[in-house]
């Protein structure tokens, strides 16, 4: 059943795909972190006429499947290359989750911190930048880490818009060499090898913050 020769042959393609997966996940997560923060800030500190529609739009994006969003964006925005589009859609999709995470973190900053800022006459902008956000982000580092891991595991969806990430490469190799078992096993193994240490890291971080 298991063809060692085929597995060895599949390895380069799978690893190359893995590189693409990482290359997609890192900027996509950066987009998610920054955009998520903007979404959270607009909802917590922005004017109501902006906060309400933004909340609605974020909820809409959050509750529709990523796969559908990828297809829709691919069809509707042909001007962008598939990898760029994939990173943006993935990042935006996760931004709507991260904005909820940030909001939880913001709400967990004690009322006394805000009151101390008022008593010191700190300007609003400074209150957010120097007092609230640093504490809010610290509050939510573990869930942020978990979302990074789950985004990494969802990146293979980009293959539907022809981004040649790892699962796509494994699939291609499997179909051309009739070696699905080998190529997908390798892909799964690489995923495991990559996400396991990451989740351990996240766990550690969690434990350290709890202490």
């Amino acid at each position: 059943m298991w063809d060692g020769e085929a597995a060895r042959a599949a390895l380069p393609a799978v690893l190359e795909g893995f590189g693409v997966t990482v290359l997609a996940t890192v900027p996509a997560f950066a987009v998610a972190m920054v955009l998520g923060l903007v979404l959270a800030l607009v909802q917590r500190a922005g004017p109501a006429w902006l906060a309400l529609p933004v909340r609605g739009a974020a909820a809409f994006v959050r509750t529709t499947p990523l796969l559908v969003q990828l297809f829709a964006a691919w069809v509707l925005v042909p001007a962008l290359d598939a990898p760029v589009l994939g990173v943006l859609v993935l990042g935006t999709h996760y931004a709507t989750y991260l904005s909820e995470v940030y909001r939880t973190g913001i709400d967990a900053v004690p009322k006394g911190q805000w009151e101390a800022c008022t008593a010191l006459s700190l300007p609003r902008r400074r209150v957010w930048r120097a007092v609230v956000l640093p504490q809010a982000v610290r509050n939510v580092l573990p869930p942020l880490g978990n979302y990074a891991v789950s985004m990494f595991k969802e990146t293979p969806l980009l293959s539907v818009i022809t981004v040649h990430e790892m699962v796509h490469e494994a699939n291609t190799f499997g179909s051309t060499h009739f070696a699905y078992l080998e190529s997908f096993t390798l892909a799964a193994g690489v995923f495991l090898l990559a996400s396991w240490p990451t989740s351990v890291l996240v766990r550690r971080l969690e434990a350290r913050l709890a202490a």
Binding site: E115, A116, A119, V131
Partner: peptide, 11 residues
Amino acid sequence: MVFQQFNLFPH
């Protein structure tokens, strides 16, 4: 103002 609970910035 000084508060009962101090309200220092912990970070």
